[in-house]
Design a protein around this nucleic acid. Structure first.
Lengths: 139, 139
DNA sequence: TCAGCAATCTGGACTTTGTCTAATTTCCGG
DNA sequence: CCGGAAATTAGACAAAGTCCAGATTGCTGA
């Protein structure tokens, strides 16, 4: 899986595997995210998908990204107040955010350990833990 | 300090101590944040400050919050893609975010330990570490 | 006191991100 | 080939935040 080629055909399989009907637009959007393995905003996805000629509408890009999110195909990363990033890496990991450049990169969660968090009330469940290291280029 | 009353007069002192010229509007905004000790969005601040009759413009609220941020008087909490929260607590601490209700609360950082983070490149410095526990009400 | 100057504040136009809707297109089973 | 469900579309709309040019405020020094 980690070595697979992110061809459009493989995208169709990936989508089906996540219970998503693989339409032309959905394949293109998945391909944009997975072939790059980068964090992209909705805007960026739209730009990539419509490079040649306008093919996919804004509404579809937003609908599709939300669908991918619900189906667990991508993850949402909230670091910049002005836009949300979508992350094709759904394995447990954290993020480093370069404040000046806006560059976002992954930290594997395997070696990171977080201890001492207070217990949650009984009626609550953890949905996820986001750890973001904000860094800046030294002066 | 932790036991002080957040009177408007004390706000003026607080602002001066952070190298901020204490104007009427700035005092009101600081008072809104510090007397409540809550996480407020710009919108909420504006609503509070203008309860009686409109006194402070949107531009001033945004300018002032940005100024407070630069001067280290408040902290920014980015958890909700649609709005930024401002946190009058600048001591090291983390956050619990209730996804459904939007409720945000503090976790004291004193007992929380994070280990195993990879070293940063030489030319980078950490500006801060944000740890957000996203929770949901059990079904 | 008061003229002058810098800092601050203001309304409102504007931008950007994202949502909504009603109408169309696509796709599939029979 | 037909009919309906699922998906897509354009474009209007909403909300958060920025920007600007003009008005206010409040010193400061003569």
């Amino acid at each position: 899986m980690s070595l697979m080629h992110y061809t459009r055909d493989n995208m169709a399989g990936l989508l089906r595997g996540h219970d998503i009907n693989p339409t032309h637009q959905r394949i293109e959007i998945a391909h944009a995210l997975f072939s790059r393995q980068e964090h992209l905003s909705a805007d960026q996805v739209m730009a990539i998908v419509n490079t040649r000629h306008s093919e996919t509408s804004k509404a579809t890009v937003y609908n599709t990204l939300k669908l991918f999110l619900e189906k667990g195909l991508v993850r949402e990363v909230i670091v910049d107040p002005s836009k949300v990033f979508f992350d094709p890496n759904t394995t447990p990991h954290h993020h480093i955010y370069e404040v000046d450049s806006g560059k976002l990169s992954d930290i594997d969660a395997e070696h990171v350990h977080i201890s001492g968090l207070p217990p949650l009330p009984d009626n609550m469940v953890t949905e996820g833990i986001d750890l973001i290291v904000r860094v800046r280029r030294k002066a």
